[in-house]
Write a protein that binds this DNA or RNA. Structure first.
Lengths: 231, 231
DNA sequence: CGTCGCTTTGATCTAAATCAAGTTGAGTGG
DNA sequence: CCACTCAACTTGATTTAGATCAAAGCGACG
């Protein structure tokens, strides 16, 4: 299966910023606003693979709309999701030539992408670009280090509380968050089963710490209490 | 407590390579062999702190002899060791200004260190240095991604098998490895208790997959079998 | 408005944690 | 050089958090 939509544009300093709902500081712009890097848009349907584990890393991506999961698999199908990527997030950035994790669209998703080689070339010319690429990889490392602590040492309730606070910070609009991912994805991110995730959420609901409007629309009613549960 | 020993030298291209038993490719040399960076040696006693979590990242370190653990703590003392650093390994490298994990000497340890600022400065002048710093952070990220899979989805026996194969690759000499760390450290690295680690090792011993000469001297007698157990 | 995937909830099981002794062995001081 | 000491390690008994197995709800979509 290939493209659902594709458009190409040459990104210059103030040329066609391609408005997208990026809540986070624009990580990509700081890098693509250089030397006529070519950025392309591409769309993926729900559950479509963006790239596979150990595939050559030809492109670097930024989520425009939608959501993406990055993950590793064991031979028998056990899966560990390393990160969720939401609008504004850059993913698939590698210092080497290979993607260490696979990536799939969680829901219908549109991304911007640039060739990894062109970024590396820009980094060779512009020290600021090189600095930014390093900083983005360091940001991914920080997240992974925090997540190792969660996976190795936190209880199920602590993991779910940490997840809710993370998602609250990343996608809450008007105090409500619309989770794009299913319970199984959350479980595979937190090193739990989907049933354990569901039970923890139910318990938080019964304690009035969160409210539901459908399984994936969540309102945090007591962030302070949640913070005491997150470890 | 402060220094056990300290010496300073100006590292130039072929000036005083300060011979050290680094089995890995010399990650530091590629970076310190530039622009008269000043490298200092420093020693730490067993269990001495090298830096704390969230402390300013003033230096970048390389193990000369000994071993180091990098870890995070929860408020109640639960600990997750993110990495062990062995002779030749660089640690404490940050893109930002803060150490994200604490570091302690596992046994008496000597390190080389350079100021982070001076490395950043060199990276601003020399693109090769910038590239190397990025590649080192990316290497740490790769390890963290692999470790998330282990912590989130592997069984106790799979974790211990993975650990043995990792250490075998990093510190086996003449088919034998001398582990510098205790069972509790191994447990805190693998997200297990020390008892579970001990039981897994005993089971591998009774199956003839490994041999002991004292609890920390291990010979792998059947790497192939171990690889089938590692997931 | 029926179907199917997702979610919740309940019952039971189990891998690993916890609690509890012993054992070993490296380092110390007599 | 030997015996003592103490931390590290092993092993056993029991507990438990979370996994697994199973069966309803529910809700979005065709």
């Amino acid at each position: 299966m290939l493209t659902q939509s594709l458009s190409t544009s040459v990104i210059g300093h103030k040329v066609s910023p391609v408005a997208f709902p990026a809540p986070a500081p624009d990580q990509f712009g700081a890098v693509t606003g250089h030397a006529g890097l070519v950025a392309t848009e591409f769309s993926y349907k729900k559950d479509e693979e963006i790239y596979g584990e150990d595939e050559p890393a030809e492109y670097v991506y930024q989520v425009i709309t939608g959501a993406v999961r990055s993950y590793k698999l064991l031979s028998d199908g056990r899966r560990q999701i390393g990160a969720f990527h939401l609008p504004g997030d850059v993913f698939g950035l590698e210092s080497g030539t290979i993607h260490r994790l696979a990536a799939e669209a969680i829901i219908d998703t549109t991304v911007r992408l640039v060739k990894r080689r062109s970024l590396e070339q820009a980094a060779g010319v512009d020290v600021q670009v090189a600095r930014k690429l390093w900083a983005m990889t360091a940001g991914d490392l920080r997240h992974a280090e925090d997540h190792m602590l969660l996976l190795g040492r936190k209880t199920a309730m602590e993991r779910v509380a940490t997840f809710l606070l993370e998602m609250d910070g990343r996608l809450a609009v008007a105090g409500m968050m619309a989770l794009p991912m299913c319970r199984r994805d959350i479980g595979d991110y937190l090193g739990l089963t989907l049933e354990t995730v569901s039970r923890a959420l139910s318990q938080l609901h019964s304690q009035g710490i969160l409210g539901f409007s459908g399984a994936r629309q969540i309102v945090l009613r007591n962030r302070q209490k949640l913070r005491t549960l997150d470890a």
